[in-house]
Amino acid sequence: MDVVDQWTGRHATALQFALRMSHDELAARLGIAKRTVAAWHEKADTVLRNELQQALDTLFEQAPQAAKIRFARRLQEADASAIEAAKDSAVRLTAAISVVLKGDNVLLVCRRDSEPSGITWQFPAGVVKPGARPEMIAVRETLAETGVHCKVREELGDRIHPLSKVRCKYFLCDYLAGGAENRDTEENASVLWSPTTDVTNFIPPENIFPPILQYLKGSS
């Protein structure tokens, strides 16, 4: 790594590590307070002011090659840790998914914009906050998104979704009342009842939780 386009707290602390400097030593070298260096460790995304950008450019350019190698490795390790943290965060997030049946039809919603994961059509879903009961979230979010009242018949299982990487808990639900309508126009473009035989026209079969797919095939 020969150039740093923009120094942040993460880059500055990586250089500090590479040069084996204490907070006091780096602060003295840059002409800043020790607490400023300490703050970079706590706020890694902080973009440093222009005069510090230039000072760190000079410090990096003057660093021996071995220090530059340590600097690059440190950044790679930090990036890898950030990616793992993001994965762990996604895994900890749980969504309750409701598969609502009305005769030979199943309720589907269409996201207004295709999500980064590639999901567009899906079953109604809601995020389960700590302490909440997933089955209640499934029922409540179905009503909030579609205007359909339902009740949980059984839990079909759970998995880490192959696209979103979110932990999903799936519930088979029976229709009670209400006409399907798009009540969340900011998030959804459409709501409809699809014949169970046509679900794979909306959602690729490889993205459907296998127990759901098996159930829908058996009910058709």
Rank of each mutant, 00 (worst) to 15 (best):
H161K: 03
P195K: 04
T196S: 10
A28W: 01
N201V: 08
K165V: 08
E187L: 12
W40M: 12
F202D: 11
A177K: 14
T185F: 02
T36S: 10
E155N: 11
D5T: 11
S117I: 07
A177W: 03
D57R: 03
D113W: 10
D174Y: 06
Y170P: 04
G118F: 01
A18C: 11
A14E: 05
P195F: 01
V4W: 01
E181W: 00
L172E: 11
D5E: 09
T142C: 02
L48M: 10
G147Y: 03
A138I: 05
R29M: 04
V109L: 06
L101P: 15
A44L: 12
L15P: 08
T94N: 06
L59V: 03
F71E: 07
L108W: 00
E42D: 11
A72I: 08
L156C: 08
A80F: 02
R74Q: 15
T196Q: 07
D5G: 11
R35I: 08
V199R: 01
Q62C: 08
V37M: 09
A144P: 08
H149K: 15
G118W: 15
R133W: 12
A27N: 05
M136T: 12
L107F: 09
L213E: 13
T197W: 00
T46H: 09
R167F: 01
N50H: 09
V199P: 11
S117H: 07
T46G: 02
R133S: 10
S219V: 02
V148P: 04
P64N: 08
K34W: 03
G178I: 00
V106F: 04
E115G: 00
Q54V: 02
V128C: 14
C150L: 00
S117M: 04
S164M: 04
A33C: 08
A85D: 13
D113L: 00
A96N: 02
V128M: 03
I119D: 13
E155I: 11
G157V: 05
T142K: 06
L163I: 10
I208M: 04
K68M: 14
A63G: 07
L163M: 12
S89G: 13
Q53G: 06
N105K: 12
A33E: 12
Q214T: 07
P116Y: 08
T146S: 14
G218K: 00
E61R: 01
R140F: 15
E51G: 08
V139Y: 02
A125C: 05
V106C: 13
L213Y: 08
E135C: 09
A63C: 14
A189H: 03
R140E: 14
R73W: 13
